[in-house]
Design a protein around this nucleic acid. Structure first.
Lengths: 364, 364
DNA sequence: TTTAGCACTCTTCCTTCCTGAGTGCTAAAG
DNA sequence: CTTTAGCACTCAGGAAGGAAGAGTGCTAAA
């Protein structure tokens, strides 16, 4: 028990050990069954006997790359094993033409409202990978109002259009029990634009509202009606929403045959806020995909689960993240490839301006 | 085997039989365990022996109101039994003040965009009942465009605001690689409003667009850009969206300990389109809640599942539905009460105009 | 360092057996 | 005719006991 072998992760593994580790991981990913020395004879094509492989397996186990469910079972990768696999052994998966085509088509989304697109992207990823997926827009810095417009509809209703400095536009139809005149509305618009533009959510204080209301004179409580809508918009943007999709895919995988486990994970995934907060979004800076294996996750509920993340640019300096959740036995290569392809697609989608009128657009 | 007893559902049950049936249903709803004659001695307070109850149980079973999982188990209600219970025996559940308060608060929703409200309502119902829930807006009749407005933002971007005759307002920010002048935009607006107002989705033909584009002259492809957005809006409204929430609650119930079963139901629920189509929405006319027990459901996937529906008014003649899905062993009384309360709340929410400016609003 | 051989360990699966709950039937009592 | 007590019978579910088989670790030889 007290052996003093170096279990240091700095110790380089021999090529043969790596080959074996890789074979174990890939076989286990495919079959979800522990892998034994005999099976490895074929999988990793080494010209050695099963006994030799057994020795190597014992070493790998001792160094923490593999685990044994029980004495007479084969080996399965430990989180540390997966980590090494992901860092060094995994072959970058190239998507087939089929797959890229499929994704590209799906990315031609209708209704380009930010939140709908993000939601759709999440669903798409889930369907693509057969794992639960989530998508969220990075919560922006403080957002301010850029402008108000009021559009008269008829005697007693008008549309408020609010635009933020992040170029998000929201509108609302407001119906009133009293009549309104066009000049009144004009006046109101000017007043709103002079008093509230450039303000963040926190700066829209009740006092400010009261002052403005006073200036409005005859327009009673209209100011507060419009401004409170603007506040809802700002609030909505600061608490960036999380969209989850395909949670039922959890049940596809044998590691969640135990209903208790499945339930725990599923209900965690539906607490969208908690999920968003537990993601190490800042750490995503350099590379645009990140893989979190089992205990590397912050959230307790994800400790025996892996998460693959990819970030995309929404434009205007904002970032968003899409991700996939699954058992640690996950096809990292495939998932990472798909995710990153979708993320790139989203970035492009958000980056582009409308098609130039007149000239037909060029496909790249 | 060949007994000729009338199994006719027209046969009235004796009071005692009803009392027993009710006790069976309610006990089974609570415990999910088959109910035996001895247990019933206490549950239904009848001054008879267990042997008498056994006789009655045998009758009820023969008449199809109860079932026996196996010879030596107690009885559980059949769908027919639940139906009778729901129709005649169930006591209308009154919500506690606590509960109504909770619901009322949750109904004070922010961001009153139609789809967000509906989504939120679904989530709320799911949380309230601990069953998966869904919500949808009844797909409207043909929707047409009521008006267009274009708001200039700066040299090369503007906001399109489209309003439909169902008073839905949608907007989109359009950025162009070329410059635009205010007069150009004015012209465009008039053109759009004269050419496309009052048209349904089908009537927005490519020819119509071409004619208008020609009239626009110097404004190149702007017309088609704006109109295709309008088309997306109309399309979005016709394919009314379905929102599901809380599917993980399925796993809470012992009838879905079998992962296979749970998975089937869950993946059916996530096919939101199929779900919406299988609901007998027209049949919901008269009463505003409807209960579908097991095989009464149209969809094969819901045959051993119950669905409780409640409809609400969106205004403008449109209706929406919220519903809950669960095992046939469902607390119908409670669920129906909650659902109908929420539906009423939604109707009120949509019906109301904005608060009258000046006067403080009255609570009812 | 590699390999063959072999004893050993455990899980998994099957069979068997037992227990207890709940029934249906019969015959007596109201 | 209805109700009740008594009793034999059925059947699911759990415990116990093997038997089979996979895979290991160790030893000793190559």
């Amino acid at each position: 028990m007290l052996n003093q072998k170096r279990e240091d992760s700095a110790v380089e593994l021999s090529e043969r050990k790596k080959k074996i580790l890789r074979a174990v991981v890939e076989s286990y990913i495919r079959t979800a069954e522990p892998v034994g020395s005999k099976a490895l004879l074929e999988l990793a094509d080494l010209n050695v006997s099963s006994a030799t492989i057994r020795n190597e397996l014992a070493d790998l186990t001792e160094q923490g790359y593999l685990e044994q469910p029980h004495t007479s079972a084969g080996r399965i990768p430990s989180p540390k094993g997966y980590r090494l696999y992901v860092n060094e052994l995994m072959q970058e998966q190239r998507l087939s033409l089929e797959e890229t085509k499929q994704i590209n088509e799906a990315l031609h989304l209708k209704m380009r409202e930010l939140d709908k697109v993000i939601d759709q992207a999440g669903r798409m990823v889930s369907q693509l990978t057969n794992y639960p997926a989530f998508a969220l827009a990075g919560n922006a810095r403080k957002v301010t109002i850029r402008r108000f417009d009021l559009i008269m509809v008829d005697g007693n209703s008008f549309i408020v259009v609010v635009m933020t400095d992040s170029s998000v536009v929201r509108n609302k139809l407001i119906r009133l029990p009293v009549d309104l005149s066009e000049p009144q509305l004009q006046l109101l618009t000017t007043l709103l634009n002079t008093s509230f533009v450039g303000k963040t959510l926190d700066e829209l204080t009740p006092e400010l509202m009261r002052v403005a209301e006073h200036a409005a004179g005859s327009s009673y409580g209209l100011i507060s009606l419009v401004v409170s809508f603007a506040m809802e918009v700002l609030e909505g943007l600061e608490h960036s929403a999380v969209y989850t999709a395909g949670t039922s895919h959890i049940l596809d995988h044998p590691e969640y045959q135990d209903v208790g486990k499945a339930q725990k994970l599923m209900s965690y995934l539906s607490e969208e806020q908690a999920l968003a907060e537990s993601l190490p979004l800042p750490a995503l800076g350099d590379d645009n995909t990140k893989i979190l294996i089992g205990p590397e996750n912050v959230a307790e509920e994800l400790k025996d689960t892996s998460v693959v993340l990819a970030s995309y640019d929404i434009g205007d300096g904002m970032k968003g993240v899409i991700g996939v959740v699954g058992p640690t036995r996950m096809d990292y290569a495939k998932v990472a490839a798909k995710l990153s392809y979708v993320a790139d697609g989203l970035s492009k989608l958000f980056g582009q301006t409308e098609l130039p009128p007149g000239k037909p657009e060029k496909e790249e």
